[in-house]
């Protein structure tokens, strides 16, 4: 029983973090048509900035989180203007730019951090008891923040004018432009949001687990997993895939070795892709 609850909580924690990153990645894909390979690096840098403010400068943890998110989101604006917009639609050159960004961010962090493994202090400490079950408050707060942000995102995308503009641009950029929607504004907003979300996830994961310069590429793989499993362009699909991948990552290692569980997860996904290359929810791409 306790094991079941713990793995459920772990699933929800991982899933909400994965979805936060994947959602931003998918947003950039559907609105700007780019695969932002630098998204993992953005996520990582978010964690390190939060660490820098909180531990090195001794600023309040929540304020540090806010600052990190703002800085990284502004970096998103920079990325959009100088790295993505000049090459919109050019797949090759976007890849090169993204790798350039990854190299610069990861090398910078490597130079500053070296081989130290750091961890952001816990956002909430203590143990919460519900009956016989003990849960760390840290996990709960991670999930609550992640879940709340996701709900807000779903509301923004489906319930607000901005969200409708985003959807319009992703479905038909030219038509949207004709209707007077500024594609640049929408793209900039998408980049701002996507990078901000990644920074939140990076900071929370930096507290939940630890910070490493490689955490970016691990998370990038997760985001890709979600986006592909869910079907590119389907938000519902990303949530579903996030739960599936989260459950696999949270539960399987309890029973078998980590490597084997990863292999099984990838095996399932590869087999699924062989039969349904468009993912669970994706439209047929013809």
């Amino acid at each position: 029983m306790e094991l079941a609850v713990i793995s459920l909580v772990n699933t929800l924690v991982l899933a909400s973090m994965y979805i936060l990153v994947a959602l931003g990645f998918a947003l950039l894909f559907s609105i700007m048509g780019i695969l932002n390979f630098a998204h993992g690096a953005v996520y990582m840098i978010g964690g390190y900035i939060c660490y820098g403010f909180a531990v090195q400068l001794g600023i309040n943890l929540w304020l540090s989180l806010l600052l990190a998110v703002l800085i990284v989101a502004s970096f998103g604006l920079f990325l959009e203007k100088f790295c993505f917009r000049p090459f919109s639609g050019n797949f090759d050159r976007t890849i090169v730019v993204c790798i350039g960004v990854i190299l610069i961010l990861e090398t910078t962090v490597n130079l500053l951090v070296g081989y130290n493994v750091w961890s952001i202090p816990e956002f909430a400490s203590g143990i919460i008891r519900i009956g016989a079950i003990h849960l760390s408050a840290e996990r709960l707060i991670t999930f609550i923040i992640g879940g709340a942000l996701l709900l807000i995102m779903v509301w923004v995308i489906n319930g607000t004018r901005t969200g409708q503009q985003m959807q319009a641009v992703s479905q038909d950029p030219e038509g949207a432009a004709l209707q007077g929607i500024s594609i640049h504004r929408v793209s900039a907003l998408a980049c701002f949001t996507a990078c901000g979300l990644a920074a939140v996830a990076g900071s929370l994961m930096g507290a939940y687990l630890s910070l490493t310069p490689f955490m970016g590429s691990q998370m990038l793989v997760k985001a890709l997993q979600l986006v592909i499993l869910g079907g590119l362009g389907s938000i519902g699909g990303i949530f579903f895939a996030g739960l599936v991948v989260g459950a696999i990552d949270a539960t399987l290692p309890l029973f078998i070795s980590g490597a084997a569980s990863q292999a099984i997860a990838f095996g399932i996904i590869v087999v699924l892709l062989l039969f349904r290359p468009q993912g669970f929810f994706g439209r047929k791409s013809g």
């Binding site: 695969l35 890709l224 997993q225 592909i228 990838f266 590869v270 892709l273 290359p277 468009q278 013809g286």
Partner: peptide, 16 residues
Amino acid sequence: LRAIYYAVVSLFFGIG
């Protein structure tokens, strides 16, 4: 699969 979809799916296959 065409274009970018092929790219993403093959990337994933590579990881898998």
